[in-house]
Design a protein around this nucleic acid. Structure first.
Lengths: 144, 144
DNA sequence: TTTTGATTTAGAATAATTCTTGATTTGTCG
DNA sequence: CGACAAATCAAGAATTATTCTAAATCAAAA
């Protein structure tokens, strides 16, 4: 945790408004004049890889960053651009329902899942029988 | 519906594998040698605006295109990169459950909603009392 | 203190997408 | 049929977010 990483993380924690990398950069500069945009990108990536921060994307807009590690969805206001966290309605594994804040109007919802399709899950299963290592084969294929 | 648009649309309909713009371009070229990537982008945008096609994004990867207009989610295989459509488990408005294909392993799920936050919904409400036109005020603000 | 390795910086490079401009096609009307 | 207007297309330049590169800096260990 270097000074720059600490600062970038603090910026994210101070206002939980899902800033873009550029916005983080502007806020960080106020406190550490010499910091560069590249460093902000580096720090955001490091923090994301470390699991302290989540990268949030909507369409092809610039990525936004969120230090909320609880399971949640995101609500993007089409009018003012604000981004809110939305908590799950219950602890049933996230497949079912969200606590939409009172007054918000949802016009569209997008759901994306990531994982292994049947075929790849099967291959991994058989690979792990041979090697005993579940993650190795996936990593090997992912390297393509 | 011009020749190029028809072709791009047919390419999407032929294989429902969510190709990127470049992939659409490669397939389209086979049937209309002179078509350009810019035209493919134009056509995809036109088709999307017309509501015949949906643009599908995961993270910052190239956009993919999908002619399935039914409500559905997307499943991205982390190993082979395949993208599958996932149907809702019931017709309850999409808040609740998805028919994950047998054998698929979901490791992560992302939910994004778009709409109007409480404040903007309230403003629009009061605007429409004055003007009688719900969409005008939103459009005006969106133009910023 | 020197070394070592990681991190930061600035700017160049990249990749997807959009924009611009001129050419082409299409539809319409005489 | 032929001319004109409007829409569309093509080619390449431009844009934008992001990543890469290489040199400079820093921090901890020896």
């Amino acid at each position: 945790m270097t000074r720059q990483r600490r600062l970038v993380y603090d910026v994210l924690l101070r206002d939980l408004d899902h800033p873009t990398a550029s916005e983080v950069f502007l806020r960080a500069k106020d406190q550490l004049a010499g910091i560069s945009l590249a460093t902000v990108y580096n720090c955001l990536e490091t923090l994301t890889d470390a699991g302290l921060v989540k990268q949030v994307n909507l369409d092809r807009e610039p990525s936004r960053y969120c230090p909320n590690l609880h399971e949640h969805a995101h609500f993007f206001c089409m009018s003012c651009g604000a981004v809110q966290d939305v908590a799950p309605a219950s602890n049933d594994g996230g497949l079912c329902g969200w606590r939409i804040p009172e007054g918000n109007r949802v016009e569209k919802m997008e759901v994306a899942m990531r994982g292994l399709c049947r075929r790849c899950a099967a291959v991994e299963e058989s690979d792990s029988e041979e090697t005993g290592d579940v993650s190795a084969s996936r990593a090997a294929r992912a390297a393509n």
